[in-house]
Design a binder for these strands. Structure first.
Length: 903
RNA sequence: GGGCGAUUGGCUCAGUGGUAGAGCGCCUCGUUCACACCGAGGAGGUCACUGGUUCGAACCCAGUAUCGCCCACCA
């Protein structure tokens, strides 16, 4: 464990000289970041015992994108947890990852360097990209220079490294207490090896498999798309009423995709639909193509949708896939991977049908649709005019054309989508996981309950983790997909496009009897789902892995529960038979002032660095920490200003609290010197705050902890500090005239004099000074997780070490110091002071106006408290003459009959 | 269509059974011997709506409306 300084003990500390004359927030970020780095304040100690470790599965931000306010928001939440746990005595394992994997990086490299990947090209050593930087403008696809895959990947890595630097500086400026010596990349060798090893083990256990099956396909990106990456969008189209030819007359169906008519394999209606019951089991013939089509019953058909009978094509939508699978229909796919109709006429079309198809071959679905509609109209098989409709179509979340469903060979990992037992097991895992807030669990359960297939993990792209498999080629040069060749785990990571499988020579690549590498890469989530294994050193550092896994906390956004959170649970369940972490902290969204989700496209994204430099990191952190987990928060500069004000107040109040006594006198932290009831009562209140803040943070409620601390702090400044400052000065600084008559007796102090009590009772002054120091010591630690810079600054004025390595405050010593002092004294005395202030405020006079006589009526139950602190109340209220204290039936203290001395 | 969340003073939000809270903003005043990135005081709300439970409801129950997010023959 790292060395810690002692908890607030009795050792005096002499640093009042080091309190700066003028305090401020500017420059604290750079200064303390540098110090923390030098001192290794947040360095993880790998020798710490396993039970002391708190490990955080930090979300690796996508470095090809830009950080926005939402990142600052949620990463602050995590940092508050990390700092709290560290102060609670945990050794916090808090690494940072960089997600530089996948399509976003590819795209950014294309735009930034003006290149595109052409896997057929050879590697060019020392390649210089034609362009560098975006200047706010991307290089158009037509102007992009084709480069080899290795060159392309080099550029991806180069740009990622640059981006990571920028990200790290921002995070450091924000004050994330990450151990920066432990960063990982999702595309680094280590992460690649982890992803490949996990995949190979899934493969060996039968959890990963390859299948030729219809799947969602993006014709623009030319890649398969997983269920989790779908986005349903409104898409305009038309309903076409088309006549099929039956023996008893035409059967009309309505379709939005008439171009799929040649792919029609059945007409389907609901089994209970009396209109179509007579047709079940019979066949009809399709218009134009004259193919014999069975009429079938299936409960998924909706009687009130369209004509109530649907044309099932291979494949128009996911329902078609379901029918095709469940009714064991033939596959008559006509749409190819490029989004165009197959160029060769399908075998099931003959005669006139083949002739019609010849007109469609090679056309996009859009032009094919027009052609088919025109032909239907000519043939008289189009009933009425098409009616416009807005339908929901599936899109790849990054694409702009509706997805097609095509058959392709893809890799899958079992995730319970086709297996009830596994699904139940994964739902049971969610029961074990503590979600913060708890209702987020429902999102997981809904998603898992609604899965309709296994997890598609293969992508037909270039930059990513390749599948570590090769296929032997038979004598005809056809790959033997069922028996993939795999490397050993020691060989990982491998790139099957350049590495050669065991038992083969490089020149056998692609030749009959030789081998070929799998050309796909893994879905980005296939790697991201392994962040715990990557961060904890599953492959590279088994000792670390044993200590840190399963991890303590996964912080993340609510939008990726179905992707990142779920897929991580899947991988961990399959590989380790456990949850990957025990807690999941879900942050909400940042919304615009008009309650819309903030996004780049709306042009309202504020750059985080600008925010941090303008308001200060503590201020921005305060805004973030004021929002509960799981709750959307408004982007509100006002809240940051409040945070800034708080941070400044912490500096100023601390400076003030440390300024009493002789300049070189030690600051006492000895609780025994706190003898005055008011001071003890303040400490009793603080003890309560410590308990509440601790309980709140233990249940991942940082807003509550901040709120109680902040409320106490402001009362401390406005009331307690005002009440005791004269006494704490001990007459050393002020002229005595003002104070000469603050002569009420002070409990625990036996002298009474016409002089200020503290002048002849140093114990009263000492009590206040020590109480101030003790309270400051505790409050700094309570604020430290949210305001790391201001608290560290103050700590450095008078204490040793970093506040961030201090133990979290404990209420017990405060209670011991407080003894049996009635805790209500601070409240009662504060209310009495407020009454005196009100008199002056209403008389529109300065708060420093002297009161030569006043009657103070206080609630009966406050009497004891006010009496106990009467000298301080008099001093703070500048009551220089008679103070007639009476009790009465009033809700709060009232001052009247005041005689104010105006000068 | 389903799920989840939200609806409290002009704004941002606390408050889960006992006479409505905070900060910002606003109004009035003060102040530069911790803090003008300041201080004090004040005004301002029938807690979205309708029913119900209860001695008592912002809070519990049912329904409605509006907003947000997620999902969508599976719900």
């Amino acid at each position: 464990m790292s060395p810690r300084t002692e908890p607030s003990g009795t050792a005096p500390t002499t640093l009042s000289r080091q309190v700066p004359e003028k305090v401020g927030l500017d420059g604290l970020e750079e200064r303390w970041d540098a110090t923390w780095e030098t001192d290794g304040t947040y360095r993880f100690d790998a020798d710490a015992p396993a039970e002391s470790i708190y490990s955080i599965d930090t979300p690796p931000p996508t470095v090809s994108g830009s950080l926005h306010v939402g990142h600052v928001f949620s990463y602050t939440h995590t940092d508050v947890v990390a700092r709290y746990r560290r102060m609670r005595g945990a050794e916090v394992f808090y690494p940072m990852g960089w997600d530089d994997n996948g399509l976003p990086t590819e795209r950014r490299v294309q735009n930034y360097y003006g290149v595109r990947c052409d896997p057929t090209l050879p590697y060019v050593p020392g390649f210089v990209p034609p362009h560098e930087g975006t200047d706010g403008k991307a290089v158009k696809p037509a102007d992009q220079v084709p480069v080899s895959r290795p060159n392309f990947i080099e550029l991806c890595e180069r740009l990622s490294a640059q981006d990571e630097q920028q990200f790290e500086s921002l995070w450091r400026y924000l004050g994330l207490s990450v151990d920066w010596s432990r960063t990982y990349q999702t595309i680094g060798d280590s992460a690649r090896a982890v992803a490949q090893q996990a995949f190979l083990r899934n493969l060996a256990r039968g959890e990963a498999y390859q299948q030729l099956a219809p799947g969602l396909w993006d014709v623009t990106f030319q890649t398969a798309v997983a269920q989790a990456e779908l986005e349903a969008r409104d898409y305009p189209g038309h309903f076409y009423k088309v006549a099929f030819h039956g023996e008893g007359g035409p059967v009309h169906i309505e379709t939005t995709r008439p171009e799929l008519l040649p792919a029609c394999v059945a007409l389907i209606a609901h089994p209970d639909d009396e209109r179509y019951q007579p047709l079940f089991g019979t066949t009809v013939r399709s218009p134009l193509f004259d193919v014999e089509i069975p009429v079938l019953a299936h409960p998924a058909a909706e009687p009130d949708k369209g004509a109530g009978i649907a044309m099932c094509c291979t494949f128009g939508d996911l329902t078609d896939v379901q029918w095709w699978r469940e009714l064991r229909l033939p596959n008559r796919t006509v749409v190819g991977r490029d989004g165009r109709l197959e160029r060769t006429t399908p075998e099931w079309l003959t005669g006139d049908g083949a002739a019609v198809y010849a007109e469609l071959a090679g056309k996009t679905t859009f032009s094919a649709r027009e052609a088919v509609v025109a032909a239907l109209r000519t043939a008289g098989d189009l009933d009425g005019e098409p009616t416009p409709t807005m339908r929901k179509a599936n899109f790849y979340e990054k694409g702009d054309k509706p997805l097609e469903i095509v058959s392709s060979r893809q890799w899958y990992i079992r995730n319970g989508g086709r297996d009830e037992d596994l699904r139940a097991a994964l739902l049971a895992r969610a029961e074990e996981l503590e979600f913060h807030p708890g209702f987020m669990r429902v999102r997981y359960e809904n998603w898992v309950g609604g899965l309709n297939g296994d997890w598609l993990i293969s992508r037909q792209r270039f930059f990513g983790v390749p599948f570590p498999v090769w296929y032997a080629l038979d004598a005809a040069g056809e790959p033997l997909y069922d028996t993939p060749l795999v490397p050993t785990e020691e060989q990982l990571p491998v790139d099957p496009s350049s590495d050669v499988p065991e038992g083969y020579a490089a020149d056998q690549r692609g030749v009959p009897g030789g081998f070929v590498g799998d050309s796909d890469i893994m879905d980005t989530w296939a790697t991201s789902s392994l962040t715990p294994q990557i961060a904890c050193g599953w492959r590279d550092d088994p000792a670390l892995f044993t200590k840190t896994f399963p991890m303590s906390l996964r912080p993340q956004g609510q939008d990726i529960i179905r992707t990142w959170l779920f897929s991580t649970v899947v991988r961990s369940h399959l590989e380790h038979g456990s949850l990957p972490w025990s807690h999941a902290g879900i942050s909400g969204w940042i919304l615009d002032p008009d309650r819309k989700k903030m996004s780049k496209s709306k042009g309202n994204v504020v750059t985080p660095m600008g925010l941090l430099t303008e308001h200060g990191s503590d201020a921005v952190r305060y805004w973030a920490a004021s929002a509960k987990l799981g709750t959307d928060a408004a982007f509100e500069v006002g809240q940051m200003k409040i945070g800034r004000r708080l941070a400044i107040k912490v500096l100023n109040a601390s400076k003030f609290a440390l300024s009493f006594g002789a300049p070189d006198a030690p600051v006492s932290l000895d609780p025994a010197t706190v003898t005055v009831p008011l001071d003890r009562a303040m400490l009793a209140g603080l003890a309560e705050v410590v308990d509440q803040a601790t309980a709140a943070l233990e249940s991942y409620d940082h807003t509550r902890a901040l709120e109680v601390t902040e409320t106490f702090f402001w009362t401390f400044c406005d009331d307690y500090l005002e009440l005791v400052k004269d006494r704490a000065y001990g007459g050393l600084r002020r002229g005595k005239s003002e104070l000469a008559r603050s002569s009420e007796p002070i409990d625990g102090v036996d002298e009474r004099s016409e002089e200020h009590a503290a002048d002849i009772n140093p114990a009263g002054a000492e009590s206040a000074r020590t109480a101030l120091a003790l309270a400051l010591d505790v409050m700094l630690r309570l604020f430290a997780p949210v305001l790391p810079f201001a608290t560290e600054e103050v700590w450095s004025w008078w204490r040793e070490g970093s506040v961030h390595r201090q133990p979290w405050p404990d209420a017990a010593p405060l209670r011991a110091a407080a003894g049996d002092a009635p805790p209500g004294i601070v409240v009662s005395a504060g209310a009495a002071l407020a009454a005196l202030r009100k008199v002056k405020s209403e008389a529109k006079l300065s708060m420093r106006t002297e009161v030569s006589s006043v009657r103070l009526t206080i609630p009966t139950d406050a009497a004891e408290g006010v009496r106990a602190a009467l000298a301080d109340v008099r001093a703070a209220g500048r009551v220089t003459g008679d103070l007639d204290l009476v009790t009465g039936d009033v809700p709060a203290p009232v001052a009247d009959d005041a005689v104010l001395v105006t000068s």
